[in-house]
Design a protein around this nucleic acid. Structure first.
Length: 257
DNA sequence: AGAACCGCCTGCTTGC
DNA sequence: TGCAAGCAGGCGGTTC
């Protein structure tokens, strides 16, 4: 599942490869995406990330906002053929950018609105004090709060589990019960884990591939997610799986208090 | 108003 | 072996 490091990886690769290119054609292969505004002949000025959304800015002030949701991928290639589950294609002189998405949750929108660049996430100008003022008193468990994209962007199930494991904080803990030092630990560990994820070009547990179809390497860095029954690298306890909401949470009951 | 829950989707895994 | 049920989960919308 593409989270912040995966989307950042794609944005960096796109920025390098498609900036300055003219859009020759757009093809929709899935009726769910019908009605996307005409953008032919526009020129790509810049590619940026906002949370988990990919923003491709055009020369006429509009932008393409792509959200990959669960299984979406972007794939840059020069072939005329397409992979199974290709939903949408941006044709440039230098190649095609295909949206491949088996589960069909991904969205593509054209917007004129000037998108707020304050990326409300840990690695881009995050305001800790503002976050704490708004959310530190909430009666919701910290795992769910970390995955609330309105509160803090970019963190999905995998990175939420990893951050709490490294911070030594139980995912069951109510946000309102956390001490200041624990919040600081979440922010500190969160930053380093997300940055490491970007360095390793994302976590390829199942679907994730970068713009060229290559898996990332961050799956080798995981210490909690997907490791049910294995020993905790911090304390030697046993990683346990529970359900929070309808999502799996992996954590170590021995060292995450 | 804030928290919990639902629905969108389909490929893969699990269980009988 | 085959088939159905279960599972994966971001996030907008709805319900409580």
């Amino acid at each position: 599942m593409p989270e912040l490091p995966e989307v950042e990886t794609l944005c960096r690769q796109l920025q390098e490869k498609v900036t300055g290119r003219k859009i020759r054609a757009v093809t929709i292969y899935d009726s769910k995406l019908d009605g996307i505004e005409e953008i032919r002949e526009s020129i790509i000025m810049e590619v940026r990330r906002s949370g988990k959304t990919i923003l491709i800015y055009l020369d006429d002030g509009r932008s393409i906002a792509i959200h990959l949701r669960m299984t979406g991928r972007l794939f840059l290639h020069q072939q005329k053929t397409r992979l199974p589950h290709t939903r949408w294609r941006l044709s440039l002189a230098s190649g095609n950018v295909d949206l491949v998405d088996p589960r069909r949750f991904a969205t593509v929108k054209i917007t004129k609105i000037e998108i707020d660049h304050r990326q409300n996430d840990l690695i881009s100008g995050f305001d800790e004090n503002q976050f704490l003022a708004l959310h530190a008193g909430r009666k919701v468990n910290i795992k769910t709060l970390l995955m609330d994209s309105n509160a803090i962007a970019g963190i999905g199930n995998i990175y939420a589990c990893e951050i709490l494991h490294r911070a030594g904080i139980s995912p069951l803990k109510q946000a309102s019960a956390l001490k200041k030092t624990q919040w600081k630990e979440i922010f500190r560990r969160g930053r380093s884990i997300l940055k490491k994820g970007i360095e390793k070009r994302g976590t390829s547990i199942s679907d994730w591939r970068d713009l060229y179809g290559c898996p990332g390497e961050n799956q080798n860095e995981l210490t909690a997610y997907g490791r049910e029954g294995r020993s905790c690298g911090v304390c030697g306890g046993v990683i346990t799986r529970i359900k929070q909401g309808s999502r799996s949470t992996f954590y170590c009951p021995a060292c995450q208090k």
